[in-house]
Design a protein around this nucleic acid. Structure first.
Lengths: 194, 194
DNA sequence: ATTTTGAACAAAAAACTATTTTGGTCGAAA
DNA sequence: TTTCGACCAAAATAGTTTTTTGTTCAAAAT
């Protein structure tokens, strides 16, 4: 056992990631994955039950990376306002980058696969929880004034979803970053006169 | 000329609306439209150049109705805050209703048709303008305090887009209404402590 | 003059068939 | 324990025929 089973599995996941990104789910073949991983096709089946399991592994790892990247970004400060800003901006950039990396999926009928739906819901819950934590911390530290943090967190998640539409069309991220900062400013100050 | 040419045209548009809603764009046939309008297939061509022109007429009328419904709704008050609330809630309800009426389009690959894209952009500009007008009026009336109303209007449009995602999945509108009101509350007050 | 329609036709979609590719299995070899 | 060639059924693709559909047009009806 020169290399561990897990190491080979991980290597396959890493190469599969590029194949999936370039060809989408449907047009990616097991043979292509195997060849890219310098393995026989049936060897791949020694590590994975089927195609869906490979894809799930890819997505799982991707989600893990996203969460870690965001976690690292918001760890840089303890100021709630700053933390929320960094969270929202990082989230926007990371998801924009991923949407462009997996660009081939745009022309695929994604809603067919219901495990995608489940991942979205999972990510939504994760987002809501992070935001909620930041909001609660901000309330405790007397930075935020929010009567119902859970509701507020949900609203922020919904509002951030609005950017999704532009990931496909908008080619340069600068505008989106500006737009994100603008929305945050509004969120902080509100628009009502005191 | 018992009935005007325009009247017949309008009647065809009205019946075509239901056919398109039930079958989507691609699966709607000229023959089906003609039969539903109690006309020979070639008679329809006396009123419309082709299939796309009929569909465009349907969409145009729909957009007109939406705009009118919203215009009527926000005419009920002159208070800026109330007006913005009514606008956002009405918009949510109207678009939710339309998304459900044209439900067959969900399984159609809509992005193929670029005239749909143009309608979205048109509606976006319309929305931005309405919101901007309300914001400016609110500033003048010392109800709102906004440094850059154009930017704020854009941000609100983006945030409202977030609801779009739920039109397909969410079956009862009550949750969405509640969610909309929550988001508005946050928009008004902001979350920062003064 | 305006409106309607049946007949006709090219283009597109659908149905069908033959062929190839692909996901997945298994037993043997390394 | 890991790799892989051989194999198979199912699915995708390519190729062909048949049917449907969008559009035109000249003639008939109003």
């Amino acid at each position: 056992m020169a290399v561990s089973k897990k190491a080979v599995r991980d290597a396959i996941v890493d190469t599969a990631r590029y194949i999936f990104a370039r060809f989408g789910y449907r047009k990616t073949t097991m043979d292509a994955i195997a060849r890219a991983a310098r393995k026989g096709k049936s060897s791949v089946y020694y590590y994975f039950k089927n195609k869906e399991e490979i894809f799930l592994a890819v997505v799982n790892k991707e989600v893990g990376s996203v969460k870690e990247e965001i976690r690292n970004a918001i760890a840089s400060t303890s100021d709630p306002k700053e933390k929320l800003t960094i969270y929202v901006l990082t989230r926007m950039r990371v998801l924009y980058r991923i949407a462009h990396f997996y660009s081939s999926f745009r022309e695929e009928y994604l809603q067919e696969y219901d495990f995608i739906q489940r991942f979205r819901e999972d990510l939504d819950r994760y987002e809501t929880k992070i935001i909620l934590d930041i909001l609660r911390d901000g309330i405790k530290k007397k930075v935020f004034s929010i009567s119902d943090p859970i509701t507020a967190a949900n609203s922020i998640v919904v509002a951030l979803k609005g950017f999704e539409y532009y990931w496909g069309t908008e080619e340069n991220i600068t505008k989106l970053e500006k737009q994100t900062e603008d929305m945050l400013e509004m969120l902080y100050r509100g628009i009502l006169k005191k």
